[in-house]
Structures are given as structure tokens and as C-alpha cells.
Design a protein around this nucleic acid. Sequence first.
DNA 1: CCGCATCCTAGGCGATACTG
DNA 2: CAGTATCGCCTAGGATGCGG
Lengths: 141, 141
Amino acid sequence: MESGGSRPTIAALEAEMVVHGKGRDDPAREVMGLLGDRWSTLILLVLATGPWRHAELRRTLAMLSAEQALSQRVLTLKLRTLERDGFVWRRVSGDVPPKVTYGLTPLGTDLHTEARRLIDWINSRSPAIREARAVFDRGQD
Amino acid sequence: MESGGSRPTIAALEAEMVVHGKGRDDPAREVMGLLGDRWSTLILLVLATGPWRHAELRRTLAMLSAEQALSQRVLTLKLRTLERDGFVWRRVSGDVPPKVTYGLTPLGTDLHTEARRLIDWINSRSPAIREARAVFDRGQD
DNA sequence: CCGCATCCTAGGCGATACTG
DNA sequence: CAGTATCGCCTAGGATGCGG
């Protein structure tokens, strides 16, 4: 395996591969993708305060995002993914009209805590990031 | 503001809004989106070992991802975004053929460290996540 | 070798309408 | 109220060819 990008560093990288995950269905890649999407981190943020019903959760998310609301369909999709991975639980009571409640599992609470650590770090660096952008844009004319 | 989803918890949420970021151009949301994409975390991983040239970096990324290589175009796009936000530097020497080298800035090194913390946590929980998926899929027939 | 322009496809996500 | 189906937009990102 020494024809392409052989380097002393390649050995270290191969050791890291396991950590990072290679496949497309790897939890690490998928969960990172989840946290990077439009709504999931915000959903975790709201559910961290306790259980919410679908419609109420949707209104609150719209309020917090200060943009337009997410569609009913998308909220269902996001919650379904979160539930599938074990971060969110779902409880149904009543039939018509249905009454569905969502909340964080212990695993979901932990995920929220971990994600918040990273988000807080990014926010702490946002002045530096904004400055870098300004410099970059100035150099690009 | 008391008609929609008013709750005791809404006050706590509004306090968090600032942390989480409201706008579309907020660094927190954008960087999380970056880390959630197909290649950026892997690029950080490789560049953490030292500076790399474009083509060599591309080959290595392809190797590590165990899938097909990312296109030249996409690598350039990703590196440009990373550079724009101050995580990556870019140095050109030579004209034809050009010789371009990329590496992590101190800020980029820190980002990699922070992101790794979250990725490591996810990996530590991947058995639980896989198990949740299995249970979920079984309940969905 | 590297970057750019062009073209194309898959998927994320919003809007709307309909069922139980 | 909650979920699903259908639609259509828009962006991420892959393939290819050109030019410096």
C-alpha cells in the first residue's frame, strides 16, 4: 500500500479510522449529520426542558428559530429519526384526536449535554470566526 | 407573547436562544452544519497530522473513507469554507504547475479537538444506538 | 497540479391537502 | 391533533473538460 499517499503520518491516520468511522451507516457520521441539520439541536434544546406535545413543540421551535416554522411533516421526520436512534421517546394516548407526547431519554439528555459543549465552544470563538471571514472576504476581491 | 406555547419553561428557553443562535448566518449553526457534512471532519482529522497538498490530501481522504474519492471540486469547496472561517490556511508556491499546501490554524486545531470529543462520545454510545435502532425497526413492522 | 465552469442527480425541507 | 402523501424548490456533491 505504498504507491499513493504514503507518509509516516498514514499509520497514525489508519489508527484513527476506527474512531472516525468508515461506513456510511456509522453512528458517528450519522449522528454528526443529524446535529448539523436544520432542527435537531434545537429540538434537543426544547425537549431538555421536559416532555412536549407535537403541535406545541412545533410552535415553540418556530418561535426560537425566529424564522418560519418547520412543517408538520419535517418535525415528524426529525422526531422519528431521534426516536429511532434512542434519543427521544414517544407516547400516544387517545385516538381521535390523538395526543402524542415526546421527551428525551437518558441517552438523549447526554447527547444534548455533549452537543452543547461543542456549540458553546463555537460560540465562544465566534468573534474569531467572524473576523476570519471579514479578512477572507477582503482578500478575495 | 402568551398565546401560543406559553409555559413556565419558555423563559428558560428564551435564555438559551442566545446561546443556540437564531439567525441563519450564526457561526454555531453554520459550523455545526459544516461538521455534519460528508467530508469536513475527515479533512480536519487528516490535516491534524500536518500540512498536505491538494492531490495527496484527496487520495488520503478517499482511502480513509473507504468509499469513492470526493471530487476535486468538492475538496476545493470544503477547504475554501474551512479557510474562510479561519480553521485552515492555504499556501501557494510555484505557478505552472501550481503547488498548494493546506494546514490547520491554531483555531482549526482546537475545533478538531472539540469535535473529536463529541465524536468519541458518540462512538462510545454506538452499541446503545445500534440497539435502539434494532428495537425500533422490530416495532415498526 | 490545481482551480474553475458546466452539467446532472439525490436528498433535505417547505407547502398543501387529506385521513382517523 | 397527529401523521401521511404529493408536490416542487433548492443545495450538496459527483463527473467531466479546459486553462494557467
